[in-house]
């Protein structure tokens, strides 16, 4: 089963080391991890996608992460009505002949072209993972040179922030 955890941590040196160290030491199966600053200057939010066998394993992930001194709060937003997004930048081979086909694909996916040159272009897409996967699959036909993805971030709908969940 896959779960999404919003982990609020103190923005102190070494905090990411502590988190990644714990994940590897306890052999947790982490699918994605994305970190960035928040509305509070001294707080960082880390969205972790985790794959576990059952609720007991999830409980272990949450309890072990909670023990880290710099972890302030963990919210399991898997079952909360939420918006989940990932950002991807994809560098695709594009020549005069197939460029317009490529533009069509990009439009269908409501992606954006953010860089163009004679041989390639860079496509930017934000959305759920499955949508990005789908675009990547289609773009494979054109020849993908490079993919970079941020990993999933998520926020709940409605007024309650993760820190108050």
């Amino acid at each position: 089963m896959k779960y999404i955890l919003a982990v609020l941590v103190e923005n102190r040196p070494g905090v990411l080391t502590h988190i990644s160290g714990l994940i590897s030491r306890r052999a947790f199966n982490i699918e994605s991890i994305a970190a960035g600053p928040t509305e509070e200057v001294d707080t960082t939010r880390i969205t972790i996608g985790v794959e576990v066998e059952d609720e007991f394993e999830l409980e272990q992930v949450v309890n072990q992460l909670s023990k880290l001194v710099n972890v302030i709060k963990i919210a399991n937003i898997t079952y909360v009505d939420s918006i989940q997004r990932e950002l991807a930048l994809i560098k695709v081979r594009a020549n005069k002949a197939n460029r317009s086909d490529l533009v069509d694909v990009v439009e269908i996916f409501r992606a954006k072209i953010v860089d163009v040159n004679r041989e390639t272009l860079v496509v930017e897409l934000s959305g759920e993972e499955s949508k990005i996967d789908a675009l990547c699959e289609v773009l494979t036909d054109f020849g993908i040179l490079e993919i970079v993805r941020t990993g999933r971030i998520a926020i709940s709908r409605g007024p309650v922030p993760a820190k108050d969940m």
Partner: peptide, 14 residues
């Protein structure tokens, strides 16, 4: 040493 001891300390500081 902080990196090395991260998995074997309750917490560490540099």
């Amino acid at each position: 040493i902080c990196g090395i001891t991260t998995p074997i300390t309750k917490h560490n500081y540099l």
